[in-house]
Simulated assay, not measured.
Amino acid sequence: MSGDEDLPPGGGRRRRRSPAPAPPLDNDDLLSDILLRLSPSPSSLPRASLVCKRWRRLVSAPAFVRSFRAHHRRNAPLLGFFTEGESRVSFTSTLEPPDRLPRGHFSLDLEGRLHMLGCRHGLVLLLNRMEHYFQVWEPVAGDLSRVAFPPEFGNGGSAVYQHAAVLRAPGDVQAGEGPSIPFLVVLVGSDTTVTRAFACVYSSETGVWGNLVSTACPSKVPMYNPSTLIGSSLYWLLGPEMAILKFDLDRQFLEVIDAPLHNCHYDMLRYWVMPAEGGGLGFLCMSGYNAQLWMRKMDCDGISGWVLGRTIELDKLLLNSGEDFPPLIIGFAEEDNMSFLMASIDGNISGIMVKLDSTQFQKPFRIECLGIYHPFASVYTPGIGIGGGHAGAEHR
């Protein structure tokens, strides 16, 4: 073969062309990065898996699922709520199809004397007060972690348990390659004379409790409602002399703050600590059909105090509401700033989810028990079967 065959018709030597770059969607890394930005709703990855075998292979890879959950964990969708029965914690989905989860998902049989305290960051906190330990449950992965009380709160200790909270440990990196979420448990209590409040923090990463911190707290316990996380601080509503206990996680500092209606009789279903409109500490009070939204502000002298922001007349918003049963507060979803209210609708006692800052309502749900409803937000990623089916939950 002659070398002239390599010459173009006009003479000169032909340049060798570089291979054409792969189209963007033919690059697995780039496509995975695009798929990572799908909505965190439960149906997103299963629907993406139906596009083709390649997409199914990418979205079902354990490394991708971990990245997907980490990418969306700060805006995890509200999946539903937990309620506690005699011996079982049951989950009810509040999503519409195709995102609604089947009844029976995330249910747990309570062993011994376990009692549910609250949810946060995809975690559920359970308590066995008689045997002095907590169970931290991750419903999506099915993991259970047992955490014993610190010595100060155990038999012979000087502190008396009052309440506790669970939250994801700070930081963006998940510990190890396992499914478990690194978490903190914050235990709060009082002395036997109810003159001081105590707090102590457990870290799952170190496996130990931190130092006990305390503050003066005269006759302002017990606590009934779950805690509220605002910024880096946890808040509990105290009674019977209504006040608010604040625990600053960053500073490890505990203090008591007056409530806006501290002269009122404490009622666990009429008052709730919540974020204020625009940020900061807020407070919700139900007075008949009026929802009062208070906010804590600092004046020109640097002194903090409560200011009534807005009063929402719920009887003008709730259609077919019964005048004989004003709304009560049964839960609050921090991630969505969503209040769970119980009211009479069309003659039936129903649950209502409402964003009070925008007065947006969602469809009523059935009330099956009287008590606290625990909203649960998480990134739920059903496993993708080889044939395109969905098998269970993908572990974190």
Rank of each mutant, 00 (worst) to 15 (best):
D4A: 06
R14V: 05
P23H: 13
L25G: 03
L30H: 06
L31E: 00
I34M: 03
L36K: 04
A48F: 10
A48S: 11
K53F: 07
A63I: 10
F64V: 10
R66C: 12
R69E: 08
F81C: 13
S87W: 05
R88Q: 11
T92P: 00
S93G: 10
S93R: 13
H105P: 00
S107E: 15
R113A: 14
H121C: 14
L126N: 04
N128V: 02
M130C: 07
M130V: 14
F134N: 06
V136K: 12
P151W: 13
G157P: 07
V160Q: 11
Q162E: 15
V166G: 00
P170V: 09
G176A: 08
P182A: 12
L184N: 12
T192M: 12
T193L: 14
V194G: 04
R196I: 07
R196G: 03
F198V: 02
T206K: 10
V208N: 09
S227V: 07
S232G: 03
Q252G: 02
L261A: 07
L261W: 08
E277R: 05
F283R: 08
F283S: 06
C285N: 11
R296L: 08
D299P: 02
C300F: 11
I303K: 15
S304I: 10
V307R: 07
G309T: 01
T311E: 13
D315E: 15
L317F: 11
L319T: 03
N320S: 06
D324P: 00
M338D: 01
A343E: 01
I345N: 00
G351H: 02
K355F: 05
L356G: 04
Q360P: 00
P364I: 03
P364Y: 00
I386M: 14
G389W: 05
A391S: 10
E394L: 10
